[in-house]
Design a protein around this nucleic acid. Sequence first.
DNA 1: CTTCTAACA
DNA 2: TGTTAGCA
Length: 95
Amino acid sequence: MTEDPTTASGLYGISAAARLSGVGEQALRLYERKGLLTPVRTAGGTRRYTDDDVTVLRRVAALLADGLNLTGARRVLELEADNDRLRLRIAELTD
DNA sequence: CTTCTAACA
DNA sequence: TGTTAGCA
């Protein structure tokens, strides 16, 4: 446990999220504007990235490296989310 | 930290 | 189209 209890919950500022994901801060803001990501905002308007957001960021980086543009990456994320929901549904039915 | 503008590949 | 630098 090298982490502070307040940060161990997986809530990061934009600079921390950028370091963890390897994506630049400006790019993070662009991804949000394009609808790939929706980090929560504090009352003051500062973004709060969760661990899940960082995971998505890594997915996006891999997708872009595969030659997709941001719109395509957004679609893939949608489909993957649907896919996960379907897998869960199948698991329920196959019990 | 935020948003915007502009330049570049 | 997407990234980056600089400004306010």
